[in-house]
Amino acid sequence: MRVMVVDDQVGIRALLAEVVKQQGFQVVLAGNAREALEKFSEGPPDLLLLDVKLPGMSGLELLRKIRETHPHLPVVLMTAYGERDIEEEAKRLGVHAFLAKPFDIEHLKELLDRFRGGASSNSLL
Rank of each mutant, 00 (worst) to 15 (best):
E88V: 15
H70K: 01
D104W: 09
Q26W: 05
R34W: 03
E83Y: 11
G94K: 04
R92T: 06
E83M: 15
F103W: 13
R92V: 06
E89F: 02
G82C: 13
L47Y: 00
L60V: 07
E89C: 05
E35R: 08
L50T: 04
L54N: 12
K21T: 12
L54I: 09
L29T: 10
D85H: 09
E35G: 02
K101C: 10
A80K: 12
L73T: 01
V19D: 08
R64Y: 00
F25G: 00
L62Q: 01
V95Y: 07
G56N: 03
L49T: 05
P74N: 04
L99I: 12
K101E: 14
D104G: 12
E106G: 13
L47G: 10
A33W: 02
L77Q: 06
E106F: 13
V75P: 11
F98A: 11
P71L: 04
V27H: 03
F40T: 02
N32S: 06
V75S: 07
A33V: 02
E89G: 06
E35K: 04
A17F: 00
A17E: 14
S41P: 03
R64L: 00
E83Q: 15
V27P: 05
T69E: 14
T79R: 10
D51K: 11
V19F: 03
V95F: 04
R92I: 04
L48T: 07
A90T: 03
V76H: 11
L60D: 08
L73M: 09
A33N: 00
M57E: 13
L108D: 12
F103Q: 15
I86W: 04
F98K: 09
A30H: 03
V28Q: 09
Q22D: 15
P71Q: 10
L47T: 10
E88H: 07
A17W: 02
A100Y: 15
R92P: 01
V95M: 06
M57A: 03
K21W: 02
L48E: 10
E42N: 10
L37A: 06
